[in-house]
Design a protein around this nucleic acid. Structure first.
Length: 735
DNA sequence: AGCACGCCGACT
DNA sequence: GTCGGCGTGCTC
């Protein structure tokens, strides 16, 4: 082989971040390969999947020049290379979230691809192409579309009024039941119609959870017959995911529907991204590069000439601030979408529920009142709430009781010696599950049979403290046992939570049972509050929301408000299946010991805007997001002392950088143990970084991150050995 | 992270 | 005499 014909290729690989090597290595290629080409390259003994990111120049490599570059093993060229826009997206995400580019790219590719050689890859691609060629082309019949109400039409007009390079991201702010999905369907139809025969448009639709994909996929399939729709989420088998990814990458899939991972789908003709329930915390990844799929969706759309529509009944304060006029100052009393003004985001507003179904009445029950403290059952279910449940039963209506705590009781307690069922591996209680008589840690999975007697003192009288969904289900059944029902039979109480839906398909089956009217009272966790329509439910009861009001987590109230609004929205949604008495008002009952809390006043008025304005003011005063930008440096170690020692060194290194005044306004908080200090026998601590401007935070993180490797190398060996890993979390969800 | 090489106790 | 314990070190 003529050595002069060889070229040096830069190839990004998924290498562990603490490796001093970086993630882009240099290999010899027989010919230049376009950036974005998939290759397999040797590294040590094994062959790894990598992505060509360019030709390496003749300058010396990072660190010592290796004695000999190794040639690439093979080129996976059965498909087009990943396009420059995708490379830019992953590179931006890597920089922004302080991770290696190769790690982000390889995590964004279907994992099954790593196991294929060039021949197997070509076979997969061929299979997909043949499959598509033989699939009967469904004729694209025109589909009957429901009429838009005035607000939906106005929102669509406003959306269409912005076009081209100057179009802003749009925030569709619409109460539950206001018909946001219909607006999504219309803007998707627009985007698909705007494509050309040679480059048919592709659309990406993001949803917060896998559970929501089937119903949305059905809705899109019905509206867009003949258009290839694929789903992309972690519930797929590796091969299914590979196929869906490939369909998106080749441009054959016109609509890609998925969870946060789908924001990285390779889509050569991407024209539109819809982010449904954009406020949902699930969009923020909690492992690897802790990216926000919603934020990346906005960035991606703006850099690929696509448009982006964020939708929510309770937008994130970040998005809400962007949709206000000057500099994020909220403006109360805004009129409908068409008047949406000069924010960074276009605001589209839907205030009315479709078919004018009324919003649920919100009733607060004061749990300090004598009626609520008379006996144990009243402390759980206020007599007024119990009466409302009974009235529902008598009328043959369904009710939903929402408790965000699964299991029977959150902790088991010995009254004699004070023993509690703590987890041996986590700083948490093991939860009492009565159905299988176990104590289970919900964090690490540690499970034991419930002891017959106190393990500390042998006392036989150990008692569950507090209540979870299992106990609530049991107690409601007891409290309602004698209540007359419209169907004449005994009351039917059912429970839907992560425990009852462990088996594949069981959530859908249980939801179907509720829809079929086989359940009178449904007990559930937030799982049932999200996205599922219960047209027969007239009453939603939230017995214990107070925990979130005074949480150390500054976003807890925001999440509670969203959950309560969403829960209330489950009640009495109008629709073709709504029963005859659909004009009857539905009700959201909230039991609280703090009835004067301003959150509840806003809830009563269904007034997200008031809640957002008040919360934004508080955040401004406290210097919290969206008025500032945060990052966390997290450290995991075998001992808390090692984690703290490591973070203290990182703190000093960061402070030294700040003393050079490189990043204006950035400040560091001293390290503290994490809220859950021990998880699965790993001690965790963290250090908060705060900055008034995103750019300053980014500049600081870049320099700091580079310095941290040297900092940790300089620490005493026993600290270094005890540290398991560390990582930066940019824009953390909880601090 | 893998997966080597590398130097000390219980087995056929 | 080997098989294997996992301690350190390297991977373009």
């Amino acid at each position: 082989m003529d050595a002069s014909a060889l070229c040096r290729l830069s190839v990004a690989l998924d290498l562990p971040a603490h490796l001093a090597l970086g993630s882009v290595l240099t290999y010899l290629g027989e010919r230049p390969l376009a950036a974005g080409t998939l290759v397999r390259v040797p590294l040590g003994k094994a062959s790894h999947l990598g992505v060509v990111v360019g030709l390496a120049d003749e300058a010396p490599l990072d660190g010592a020049e290796p004695t000999a570059l190794r040639p690439v093993d093979e080129v996976l060229d059965a498909t087009a290379p990943l396009n420059p826009a995708w490379l830019n997206l992953t590179r931006f995400a890597a920089h922004y979230y302080q991770r290696a580019w190769g790690e982000v790219m390889l995590a964004a590719l279907p994992s099954h691809l790593r196991r294929l050689d060039a021949t197997q890859w070509a076979a997969q691609v061929g299979k997909l192409k043949r499959g598509l060629a033989s699939a009967p082309a469904t004729p694209a019949r025109p589909v009957a579309m429901p009429d838009l109400n005035a607000e939906q039409a106005a929102a669509l007009r406003a959306w269409r009024a912005e076009a081209g390079a100057t179009a802003r991201p749009a925030l569709l702010f619409g109460v539950t039941g206001s018909g946001k999905t219909e607006v999504y369907l219309r803007v998707v139809a627009d985007a698909l119609a705007a494509g050309t025969a040679t480059a048919p448009s592709q659309v990406l639709v993001l949803v917060p959870e896998i559970n929501l994909t089937p119903q949305l996929e059905a809705r899109f399939a019905e509206r867009f017959p003949g258009q290839a729709i694929v789903s992309l989420h972690s519930g797929l088998t590796p091969v299914q995911r590979l196929r869906a990814w490939l369909a998106a990458h080749t441009g054959q899939a016109r609509i890609v529907l998925g969870t946060r991972m789908a924001v990285f789908a390779s889509m050569p003709n991407l024209r539109l991204i819809v982010v449904d329930e954009e406020h949902d915390p699930s969009y923020k990844a909690q492992d690897g590069a802790r990216h926000s799929a919603r934020d990346l969706a906005v960035w991606r759309a703006q850099h690929e000439g696509a448009r982006v529509l964020l939708g929510s009944a309770t937008p994130s304060l970040e998005s809400w601030a962007h949709a206000q006029n000057a500099g994020g100052v909220p403006m109360a009393g805004r009129r409908v979408g068409e008047l949406a003004g000069s924010g960074r985001y276009q605001l589209l507003t839907l205030r009315e529920r479709v078919a004018s179904a009324p919003l649920p009445q919100v009733r607060l029950l004061d749990m300090n009142a004598p009626a609520a403290t008379a006996d144990e059952s009243s402390r759980l279910i206020h007599p007024v709430a119990l009466a409302a449940l009974k009235a529902c039963l008598a009328r043959g209506e369904q009710s939903l009781v929402l408790l965000n705590r699964r299991g029977y009781a959150p902790v088991l307690h010995c009254g004699a010696c004070g023993w509690k069922s703590e987890c041996a591996h986590c700083s948490a209680w093991r939860v009492f599950h009565r159905t299988d008589r176990t104590l289970r840690c919900h964090h690490c999975g540690l499970t034991h049979r419930v002891p017959r007697a106190c393990p500390e003192c042998g006392n036989l009288d150990i008692k569950p403290l507090g209540h979870g969904t299992q106990k609530l289900e049991e107690q409601l059944a007891a409290l309602l046992a004698q209540a007359p029902t419209a169907h004449g039979g005994p009351v039917r109480v059912a429970r839907i939570d992560a425990d009852s839906t462990r088996l594949k398909g069981s959530l859908q089956a249980q939801l179907a049972g509720v829809h079929a009217g086989e359940v009178d009272v449904l007990v559930g966790t937030q799982m049932v509050a999200k996205g599922h329509d219960f047209r027969r439910i007239r009453l939603v009861l939230v017995p214990e929301p107070d925990g979130a009001l005074f949480s150390h987590d500054f976003r807890a109230a925001e999440r509670l408000f969203a959950l309560l609004m969403q829960a209330g929205g489950r009640a009495g949604r109008a629709g073709p299946e709504a029963d005859a008495q659909s004009d009857a008002t539905s009700e959201l009952i909230v039991q609280t010991s703090f009835p004067t809390h301003p959150l509840f006043a806003a809830l009563k008025g269904h007034d997200f805007e008031a809640f957002a304005a008040a919360t934004l003011t508080e955040r401004a005063q406290a210097g919290l997001p969206p008025h500032s930008h945060l990052a966390l440096l997290r450290c995991e170690a075998r001992t808390q002392a090692a984690a703290m020692a490591w973070l203290n060194a990182a703190f000093d290194a960061g402070q030294a950088l700040l003393d050079q005044a490189a990043a204006p306004g950035v400040s560091l908080c001293p390290p503290v143990p994490a809220a859950m200090a021990r998880l699965a026998n790993v001690e965790r601590a963290q250090l908060l970084v705060e900055a008034p401007r995103r750019a300053a935070l980014q500049a600081f993180l870049r320099d700091w991150h580079a310095a941290l490797h040297a900092t940790s190398a300089a620490l005493p060996q026993e600290v270094g050995r005890a540290v398991i890993r560390w990582a930066v979390d940019v824009d953390p969800q909880v601090i």
